[in-house]
Amino acid sequence: MANPKKLQKLPRSFYSRDSLIVAPELLNKVLRCHDGRAGRIVEVEAYRSDDPAAHSYRGRTPRTEVMFGAPGHMYVYFTYGMHWCANAVCGPQGVGNAVLIRALQPIAGLDLMHAARPLAKNDRQLCNGPACLTQAMSITKLQNGVDLVSGDRYALVDDDVPPPERPVQTTRIGISKAMDYPWRWYVGESLYVSKK
């Protein structure tokens, strides 16, 4: 990873576009925590308000309020009664689009990640799934609504590693609606993807 002082936070304009555009462009960006933990994004899924699998599909609720808010914020939700998942809110405010961050390649602060995920047997298991990466990065409901652009605790940053020219594009994982939408992208050669 580049010198942390030279990392550039993604601007609000990056997130202000449709989630189907933002999602593949998030590949190889870096999710960074204030304590030095960082991981390169290697797998994402897009969700939109006209998508039956999206939380925003049924409209604005207390749970999805952040998803309908300003782009560039973190939308964190609880799933299966035990896991947190982290998303980047996209599109114009009021639309309800987001990109789920599904997997990271750990690149800094691995000792802290292992402490947060004691059951991980190796570095590959630290962040190879949406629930794994939130545990490794200590993301919970307390981070719901965090501003990734102007905040100082979590950020998505660019360290000059471009997205892959030909990311693998597939259907999404673990959903029961809109299962045929090819709105999942991952870095093909990555060993840290949740499922190929």
Rank of each mutant, 00 (worst) to 15 (best):
M67G: 04
Y154I: 10
N97D: 14
E43D: 03
V95F: 09
Y80F: 08
G145W: 00
E25G: 03
P106W: 00
K5Q: 13
W183E: 04
E165S: 13
G36P: 11
G69D: 09
P11K: 10
T79Q: 09
D180Y: 03
V146Q: 10
R60M: 14
Q169M: 14
Q105C: 05
H83Y: 01
K121A: 08
A115Q: 15
V22G: 11
D35T: 09
H114F: 13
A54H: 03
D159K: 08
P164K: 10
R37I: 00
L119H: 15
L110Y: 06
V22Q: 12
R117L: 02
D111C: 08
V95E: 15
V146T: 13
G151C: 12
R172H: 01
E189N: 15
Q169F: 01
M1Q: 12
Y80S: 05
L148A: 08
Q135G: 08
A54N: 04
D147T: 03
G94K: 09
D160G: 07
L27G: 02
V42I: 03
L119A: 15
E45N: 04
S49M: 10
H73F: 02
P4F: 04
E45H: 09
D159Q: 14
P130H: 08
A53I: 07
T171A: 10
P162K: 07
A155H: 01
H73R: 11
P182I: 11
P163Q: 14
D18E: 14
S16F: 00
V89E: 10
H34T: 11
A178W: 06
V146N: 13
S194K: 06
N97C: 12
G69P: 12
L148S: 06
L112W: 06
P130A: 06
S194C: 03
L156Y: 01
P167R: 14
V89W: 08
T171H: 05
R12D: 07
M113L: 04
V66R: 09
L156A: 02
Y80K: 07
Y154A: 10
P52L: 10
L119T: 15
A23W: 04
N97H: 15
G69H: 11
Q105H: 09
P167M: 14
Y80A: 07
P11M: 08
N97V: 07
V157I: 08
A136Y: 07
D180W: 05
M1G: 13
A53W: 00
R32A: 03
N128M: 04
Y15D: 08
I175S: 00
G174S: 07
R48K: 15
W84T: 02
P118F: 13
N3H: 14
G174W: 00
H83F: 00
K177I: 04
Y154R: 10
A136N: 05
K196F: 00
C90K: 07
G174N: 05
S49E: 09
G109H: 12
R12K: 13
A86D: 06
Y181T: 03
V95D: 15
A38S: 11
L133R: 05
G96I: 03
L112N: 14
Y77P: 04
L27I: 10
C132Y: 02
V161E: 06
R124Q: 14
H55T: 07
D18I: 09
F14I: 06
V89L: 05
K177E: 06
N128Q: 05
A98W: 01
A116E: 02
D147N: 15
V89C: 05
W185G: 02
L104S: 01
Y77L: 06
S194P: 03
A70S: 11
M137A: 04
L191A: 11
R17N: 14
Y75H: 04
